[in-house]
Amino acid sequence: MSNRTTLADLRGMDAGQAARLPPAHLALLLEDAAALRADAKHVSDLLSDALHRRYGAIAIERRQAEGKDTGRVRFLDAGFEITADLPKRVEWDQARLAGAVEAIRGWGEDPYDYVATEIKVAESRFTAWPPKLQALFQPARTVGTGRPSYSLEQVEW
């Protein structure tokens, strides 16, 4: 019998109880959770591949019959309605878009009637700018945070 905290034990705890576990237990639980995520991803990928092998050709035929290359189609198999979705992923060449925007502007029209733009500033560039330039952009900048993460690695003393 081991006094090692398992994921099953952890599921019965709240965050306060888990926070009181020894670092060695937390480190092992992190490893267990990572292995569980990797296994779940493997299983999910395997199922996705299996569904594509089983229904991919049928979905292609149905889309062709409906005159489309992408999107959702439905069909039946052994009493189940199968929904096969092939999302459209559109990418735009930014330099060519800029040229098109300038062409519209040259026609005397407002390009923003047709396109939306988002101006981004790389944080690494912002922090390298001189203070005068940073001050100009500072009012437009909001800094938030992501979810905190931690890793535990045993060290030898």
Rank of each mutant, 00 (worst) to 15 (best):
G67Q: 00
L136R: 11
Y114I: 01
N3W: 10
E123D: 14
T127W: 12
F137R: 09
F75L: 04
A34I: 00
E102P: 01
G108Q: 04
A78D: 14
Q17W: 09
R20K: 11
I58H: 06
A128T: 07
A40P: 05
R105M: 02
A128K: 08
W107Q: 14
Y55W: 15
G12V: 00
Q94R: 14
G56P: 05
A103K: 12
T5K: 04
D39I: 09
W157C: 11
F126C: 03
G16Y: 09
E61Q: 12
D32C: 07
A84D: 01
L86F: 00
L21P: 02
F75H: 05
Q64K: 02
T5G: 01
K41T: 10
E153C: 10
D93R: 02
A34F: 00
D14A: 03
I119Y: 12
L86K: 01
T70E: 11
G71M: 03
V121T: 10
I104Y: 06
V73D: 00
R72A: 09
V73R: 00
A103G: 05
A27P: 01
L152E: 06
I119V: 15
P130T: 10
L76A: 12
A8W: 10
W107S: 11
E153I: 09
A50V: 10
W107M: 14
S44P: 05
A38K: 06
P22V: 04
R105E: 08
A100Y: 13
R74N: 07
W92M: 13
L51S: 07
R53D: 14
L30V: 01
I60E: 15
T127M: 12
A38D: 10
R4L: 07
K41D: 14
E118T: 12
P111M: 08
S2K: 05
T117I: 09
D93G: 02
A38R: 08
A122D: 15
A40S: 12
A84H: 00
V73L: 01
S149F: 11
P139W: 04
W92V: 15
A84K: 00
D39T: 13
T5E: 01
G106D: 07
P111D: 07
A19Q: 07
L36I: 03
I82S: 05
K88D: 03
A84E: 00
A84M: 01
T83R: 14
D9C: 04
L21N: 03
E109P: 08
L76W: 09
H25V: 02
R74D: 06
D9L: 04
L86P: 00
I60V: 14
A135T: 08
V73F: 00
E102D: 11
V155Q: 14
W107L: 15
G144L: 13
Q94N: 12
L10V: 10
G56T: 10
D9M: 06
G12M: 03
G144I: 14
P131A: 15
S149T: 14
G106F: 02
F137S: 11
R20F: 08
A27L: 12
